[in-house]
């Protein structure tokens, strides 16, 4: 194939890379140096780092994302592990994927009903004798719904790494005298860590920015980085500050990517 023709193929894709990948990121960084009255300034960053509000909000957001990721992982790993041993696993896997095809807003909306004063959750609590509680618009409900939404995204990569695991490793471990549990924590878990890391990547970063959930379920009590950005862009119209938080979110994203990237795995590919 001649060079010229190859370039022809590349034009639309290259345009996309330039216009919709590089330019927007550059613009958000650029915008973060502008104040409300369009002056170039470092004030946004100064505000971010000096006012405890933003730092606390960031810490809060990271903490919630951490909790959501942790709970998702704790639920998903055993699920993927059991799924792996099933007979019709492709079918069951499809059942895991199916809820991700339901619009996230609809799922959030369902929980507005479930967690409402007279919803099923409270009926259940009444049934087991705890009595109705305020569920909606609490931190716990936010974490619950976020975890619910993220579970499939954690199950899939873990399932894939379990499926890739050569069963001979498990046999070898048993052969050398290890019990099932020893085999799990010495062989299976370390070897499926790349899947867990991929799952963390897929869950943690979006969890920093789930502004619709904080609004619909968290009742604005939880402010995540995403909520703050949305508010600055669409409500207070302070794009400079919004971009600054955006840059913080990008930095957080890069850190998470670095921590969870599987360097050894990549080099061997």
């Amino acid at each position: 194939m001649t060079k010229r023709k190859t370039c022809g193929y590349f034009i639309p894709y290259g345009l996309w890379l330039g216009l919709f990948v590089i330019a927007p990121v550059a613009l958000i960084v650029y915008q973060s140096f502008f104040s409300l009255d369009h002056h170039v300034t470092l004030a946004n960053y100064a505000t971010y780092f000096q006012s405890g509000v933003y730092l606390k909000m960031t810490l809060n957001s990271v903490w919630y994302a951490f909790l959501i990721t942790l709970f998702t992982g704790l639920i998903s790993y055993p699920t993927a592990y059991v799924l792996r041993q099933l007979k019709h696993r492709q079918f069951w896997l499809l059942l895991v994927i199916l809820p991700t095809w339901i619009n996230i807003l609809l799922k959030a909306y369902a929980f507005i009903g479930i967690f409402s004063q007279d919803g099923v959750a409270n009926s259940f609590l009444r049934f087991i004798g705890i009595g109705p509680q305020q569920l909606l618009f609490t931190n716990a409900s936010f974490i619950f719904v976020a975890t619910y939404i993220q579970i499939p995204f954690m199950i899939l990569p873990i399932y894939n790494s379990l499926a890739d695991l050569n069963p001979a490793y498990i046999n070898a471990s048993l052969d050398l005298g290890a019990t099932r549990w020893q085999t799990f924590y010495r062989v299976i878990f370390p070897l499926t860590l790349p899947g867990v890391k991929a799952g963390v990547q897929a869950v943690f970063i979006p969890s920093l920015s789930l502004f619709m959930l904080t609004r619909l379920i968290g009742g604005n009590k939880v402010i995540t980085l995403g909520t703050a950005i949305e508010e600055h862009f669409l409500t207070t119209m302070n794009w400079g500050m919004g971009s600054t938080i955006g840059v913080v979110l990008i930095v957080a994203m890069i850190i998470v990517m670095q921590l969870t990237n599987d360097h050894s795995g990549r080099s061997s590919q």
């Binding site: 613009l27 949305e230 862009f233």
Partner: peptide
């Protein structure tokens, strides 16, 4: 490099994509 650039929008949080496109 191309692959990394390709993946930027895959891993970016929605709000960042939304906000940056809005500026754009």
């Amino acid at each position: 490099v191309l692959l990394s650039l390709n993946n930027i929008l895959m891993v970016s949080p929605d709000v960042i994509i939304g906000a940056s496109f809005l500026i754009f």
